[in-house]
């Protein structure tokens, strides 16, 4: 930004925003409903799964491989366990791992991104090359590497998602910080003697909140897919504890005789990712309309 000697009036192309049409408004209402349903649904599954399914998910019964009926909505498995209850209770490890993983990755990504963005050139170069290296490895490979060293379990999956998603967030945040850094209000803060830390917290972070919320919420769907893939491979909770991924894998052996074993956990994963993506898209249109049009 250099000062111009004479004041000139620059007339750019005028962007006329259309009045929201009926379909746009309908979509907004739909988005709001989806968001509300998602939040309530996720919370209920996380906090009180017992209120939704009264049967113990690990209790075995005599009714083996029963098809879905009024008694067992989703049928029973080879040990007579209630599939409906297992599907409800199986949400916990998945949602816990993916939501906490995304939160971890968001916090770490923002911290690394801002730090690199305000750091001296050489430090920025070092940090961003490390980020590039991690970005060059597929998310699932990073997750598998971590589990190979840390051992399997839900805690490892949280850590794996947290670390594997961090470089992507850091890359985007760093880019935004670089644009913000040249903004006049940030330059002014420096001129008035604001330190790097203070500038980061007082000026950069508040301007990144929207972007970070949009980024984080749009990553939840991917995180759910990653978490269930890992537990599908048997790297999550141990049987007999319920889990969508491992139950889906366990049901695959009885696929031809008892379709319900794999279908319900699979549908649960699909619906969860759908809801997460729908809510993420909605948040994007509300918080960042420019992004939403592309």
């Amino acid at each position: 930004m250099t000062s111009t000697p004479t004041s000139t009036l620059v007339i750019g192309p005028v962007v006329v925003l259309d009045k929201p049409s009926a379909t746009t408004r309908a979509r907004q209402v739909l988005g709001r409903i989806a968001l509300a349903v998602t939040v309530v649904f996720f919370l209920a599954l996380l906090i009180t799964p017992g209120a939704l399914a009264h049967v113990d998910p690990v209790a075995t019964g005599d009714d083996i491989l029963a098809a879905p009926s009024a008694g067992h909505l989703f049928g029973t498995d080879q040990l007579g366990r209630d599939v409906f209850s297992r599907t409800i209770h199986g949400a916990h490890p998945v949602l816990f791992a993916s939501l906490l993983g995304v939160v971890l990755a968001t916090v770490a990504g923002v911290a690394v991104g801002i730090a690199a963005g305000v750091a001296p050139r050489w430090l920025n170069a070092v940090v961003m090359r490390v980020v590039d290296v991690l970005l060059a490895l597929p998310v699932l490979l990073i997750a598998l590497m971590l589990i190979a060293t840390a051992g399997s379990g839900v805690r490892s999956i949280v850590l794996a998602i947290g670390i594997a998603f961090t470089p992507g967030f850091a890359r985007i945040v760093e880019g935004s910080v670089r644009t913000l850094r040249s903004a006049e209000f940030v330059q002014a803060a420096y001129v008035f003697g604001s330190t790097r830390l203070r500038t980061s917290l007082r000026h950069l972070l508040p301007n990144l909140v929207t972007e970070v919320v949009v980024l984080g919420s749009s990553a939840i769907g991917w995180a759910v897919l990653t978490a269930t893939t890992l537990s599908f491979l048997g790297l999550g909770v141990l049987l007999p504890q319920p889990d969508w991924g491992s139950d889906l894998a366990a049901g695959a052996t009885n696929l031809s005789t008892a379709w319900w074993l794999s279908t319900f956990p699979g549908l649960a994963i699909t619906i969860t990712i759908l809801l997460a993506n729908f809510s993420g898209d909605y948040l994007m249109t509300v918080l960042d309309p420019r992004e939403a049009t592309t």
């Binding site: 769907g221 897919l225 599908f232 889906l248 794999s262 699979g266 699909t270 990712i273 759908l274 729908f278």
Partner: peptide, 13 residues
């Protein structure tokens, strides 16, 4: 929209 949401290991089954 559905294609992104269905996990490939579920679709395979």
């Amino acid at each position: 929209f559905l294609g992104v949401a269905v996990p490939y290991f579920f679709l395979a089954l």
